[in-house]
Amino acid sequence: MPAIITIHDQPLPYESRLDERATASIDLIVIHCTELPDMATAREFGERVRYTSGTGNSGHYYVDVDGSIYRYVADRRIANHTVGYNSRSIGIELANVGRYPYWGDSRHQAFTVPYTEPQIESLLGLLRKLRNDHPGIRYIAGHEDLDLRLEPAVDDATIMLPRRQDPGPLFPWPRVIADIALERLHATPAP
């Protein structure tokens, strides 16, 4: 049984409009980086309605730099966080500036702020809880592993950049994989 962790429930205003699913269908956890300056901005971004269904883009869980965990979308709901994988996955967002605010600028693609120790410890606790709650979970991936689309850089359209690079090169994959014992999933690039 995993250690008890505290999860602050803060459902998004449109959570009830997100499709429901059988939690037995969940076999994947996708790790993201907010690439925003703070949790307040991440919350505001998650509340934005982007679809005719009245919903937006959000992970299920958010882990702040101090290790606090927030649930924005219940596991039984399909959150919009990774194109093509939403119905089978739980999305976890880690608060980190990433490339903010230069996501599409080829001159600013480096991730320079490491994830904090409290954040990684809380993530590991959350992953253990999710594995206990959903025994069908077998895989873990970064957003960058699954969304392989490219887009032109805003500063030079001849340069194609990966659309998603999170959780990025500073994420401690070896530690997480060793602790949680899930298989890392990678998308197959299109020919």
Rank of each mutant, 00 (worst) to 15 (best):
residue 142 G to D: 09
residue 150 L to G: 00
residue 48 R to H: 07
residue 101 P to Q: 09
residue 46 G to V: 00
residue 93 E to C: 11
residue 55 T to L: 02
residue 42 A to I: 00
residue 139 Y to M: 12
residue 135 P to G: 14
residue 114 P to H: 06
residue 108 H to N: 11
residue 59 G to A: 15
residue 27 D to A: 07
residue 124 L to G: 03
residue 142 G to C: 06
residue 60 H to Y: 10
residue 53 S to N: 13
residue 55 T to N: 01
residue 33 C to R: 14
residue 112 T to R: 06
residue 151 E to Q: 14
residue 150 L to A: 12
residue 105 D to K: 08
residue 79 A to F: 05
residue 112 T to S: 08
residue 26 I to N: 02
residue 99 R to Q: 10
residue 121 E to A: 07
residue 33 C to P: 00
residue 59 G to L: 01
residue 32 H to N: 14
residue 144 E to S: 14
residue 45 F to G: 00
residue 29 I to Q: 11
residue 92 I to L: 08
residue 59 G to M: 05
residue 101 P to L: 12
residue 93 E to I: 00
residue 157 A to I: 04
residue 131 R to Y: 04
residue 100 Y to G: 01
residue 126 L to H: 12
residue 91 G to K: 10
residue 124 L to Q: 08
residue 149 R to H: 12
residue 146 L to A: 03
residue 52 T to I: 08
residue 112 T to E: 13
residue 120 I to Q: 05
residue 133 D to L: 13
residue 134 H to P: 01
residue 96 N to R: 09
residue 113 V to C: 02
residue 121 E to V: 10
residue 59 G to R: 02
residue 131 R to M: 12
residue 92 I to H: 06
residue 53 S to P: 00
residue 40 A to C: 03
residue 89 S to I: 04
residue 155 D to N: 15
residue 149 R to A: 14
residue 130 L to N: 09
residue 142 G to H: 09
residue 156 D to A: 11
residue 146 L to K: 03
residue 39 M to G: 13
residue 104 G to N: 11
residue 152 P to G: 07
residue 44 E to H: 12
residue 62 Y to W: 15
residue 106 S to F: 13
residue 65 V to W: 00
residue 40 A to F: 02
residue 140 I to F: 05
residue 128 R to P: 01
residue 98 G to I: 09
residue 88 R to L: 04
residue 48 R to M: 03
residue 80 N to V: 11
residue 108 H to W: 07
residue 58 S to R: 07
residue 41 T to L: 01
residue 68 S to H: 10
residue 63 V to L: 09
residue 110 A to F: 02
residue 45 F to R: 13
residue 27 D to S: 13
residue 28 L to A: 08
residue 117 E to Y: 02
residue 44 E to C: 02
residue 88 R to Q: 14
residue 114 P to A: 12
residue 59 G to C: 15
residue 145 D to N: 15
residue 161 L to G: 04
residue 99 R to P: 01
residue 88 R to W: 04
residue 46 G to P: 02
residue 155 D to E: 10
residue 157 A to K: 13
residue 107 R to Y: 10
residue 58 S to K: 01
residue 90 I to S: 08
residue 113 V to Q: 09
residue 79 A to W: 05
residue 160 M to F: 11
residue 148 L to Q: 05
residue 69 I to A: 06
residue 87 S to L: 10
residue 114 P to E: 03
residue 143 H to E: 09
residue 113 V to H: 06
residue 69 I to G: 02
residue 27 D to G: 04
residue 72 Y to N: 01
residue 101 P to A: 10
residue 40 A to W: 02
residue 40 A to H: 10
residue 155 D to G: 08
residue 159 I to Q: 11
residue 140 I to K: 07
residue 103 W to V: 04
residue 104 G to I: 04
residue 117 E to F: 06
residue 156 D to N: 15
residue 54 G to A: 05
residue 82 T to A: 15
residue 115 Y to I: 02
residue 29 I to G: 00
residue 127 L to D: 09
residue 85 Y to M: 12
residue 49 V to A: 07
residue 113 V to M: 06
residue 80 N to L: 14
residue 93 E to N: 11
residue 126 L to N: 06
residue 115 Y to N: 05
